[in-house]
Design a protein around this nucleic acid. Structure first.
Lengths: 248, 248
DNA sequence: TAGTGGTCTAGACCACGGT
DNA sequence: CCGTGGTCTAGACCACTAA
């Protein structure tokens, strides 16, 4: 069942992506869109809210909406899963488990994932034949067994876990910064020690808010970029200070 | 004039931040919230949509909404403006123009900012007394004169431009990656050449979609982190590949 | 001042989750 | 099965922009 407002949003998005509504141009008014699609105004507003959330259009009270950009945002799955992202963008990609072991959870890990044992997995992912990403992932005890059953060269861990135990990654928190490559990072990614890496730390939970995994992912510099489009009134991304003040 | 749904959202947000609604707990149903505030259900849905956009609550059809986190997202202004962010978080901060000059726009700059001259400014920003951010900003010709009137040690360029010509930065696109410090970066930020920097490139426009500036901001590693909370169905952040394939 | 988007209401039906 | 959130309607009034 596809919602009416999704169809209207698709329609408008196609006009933007195709260039029929160029960047900087005005969208039709809500009244006109409502008449064109035979829908109520509220439904049209839901549709343009989708486009606004994608960063494609902006709006201000009293004036027509304008087109801000043509790039289509990808889904949560594509941010969460390297495989889903790479596939959606037509890249050749691969993955290989380097090491995998169970151990007791540290205090910090207990706080994030719950008490007990954790499963620590080191995975190297490649894009277009080159190693680009080193994932150090810690899984909560309740998914550890399912993760251990996954082949070492599995393309998509996310999909494997969905197929095997119906696990859906629903919410994530991500911290993005830059770090120096350590000895292991450098060896596996094929860069010099101390060279820059883009780091994405994340904690992911299920629909119910149950923590699944905590990960430290490091990208070779130049291999990927994170992109965000925002506006006054929208605030998806936040800047946080590091360890600047004494006592922190 | 504060909207009704904003008041309801504030109310719920306070309960979350104060811990009255702990992380993982369920929100009251829409019907109950509507009755409690004497509002229609649609208004209540607007309120919880605000919290969902902030990443504080998640929802799924058929089940109660749950609390995902307590951290309050900051505003667009705080992502856009170093000064607004630093002030909102209680940091001591400063800024100093290093160099500033007018020149002809390159082809890429003309495409982003419009044709003609541009004003190129190199600014060093400090946090808690330490240099942490080097901004290389290129302003469009129509704001160049106003920027040139700003004192070299101005704390907040964003606010200065609002006060002087009423300019409001409304929309921004940001690209985040990691790079090596060049000679100039290293000297001004007080790090070694080749050490990692977190880079944020951005293009900002007015409400009308008119481009104002394009900037390359580089943070010393460890000084700041970007944070994002997302969910299935929300997609503020996007990953993009770099220069991996031949011919790109 | 006319047109536009922002807010709000009161109701309806449906899809899904949990019991 | 009931309660929940998701979708949709038809209308109203207001705040703001632009001519």
């Amino acid at each position: 069942m596809v919602a009416r407002y999704e169809l209207i949003a698709d329609d408008l998005r196609n006009e933007i992506v195709s260039g029929a509504l160029p960047v900087g141009s005005q969208l039709p008014s809500e009244a006109e869109l409502a008449e064109r699609h035979g829908a109520a105004r509220g439904t049209v507003r839901q549709a343009v809210a989708v486009l606004a959330a994608e960063g494609l259009v902006g709006s201000r009270q009293g004036a027509r909406r304008i087109v801000l950009g043509r790039a289509r945002s990808q889904s949560f799955g594509e941010l969460h899963s390297f495989a889903q992202w790479a596939r959606a963008n037509g890249y050749r990609f691969g993955g290989q488990v380097i090491t995998q072991r169970r151990r007791a959870a540290s205090a910090a890990e207990s706080a994030r994932l719950g008490p007990g044992e954790v499963l620590e997995v080191l995975r190297l992912r490649s894009l277009e034949g080159e190693p680009v990403l080193l994932e150090r992932t810690v899984y909560a005890e309740w998914v550890a067994a399912a993760v251990e059953r996954i082949p070492a060269d599995c393309e998509s861990v996310t999909e494997a876990l969905y197929d095997s135990i119906g696990l859906v990654f629903a919410y994530g928190e991500h911290l993005i910064d830059a770090v120096s490559a350590g000895a292991e990072d450098a060896r596996l990614l094929g860069v010099r020690r101390g060279s820059p890496l883009l780091r994405q730390r994340r904690v992911t939970t299920t629909h119910e808010g149950r923590p699944v995994e905590s990960s430290d992912d490091r990208y070779r510099a130049g291999s990927v970029t994170f992109s965000i489009r925002n506006s006054i009134g929208a605030n998806p991304l936040v800047r946080q200070a590091g360890d600047l003040r004494s006592g922190r």
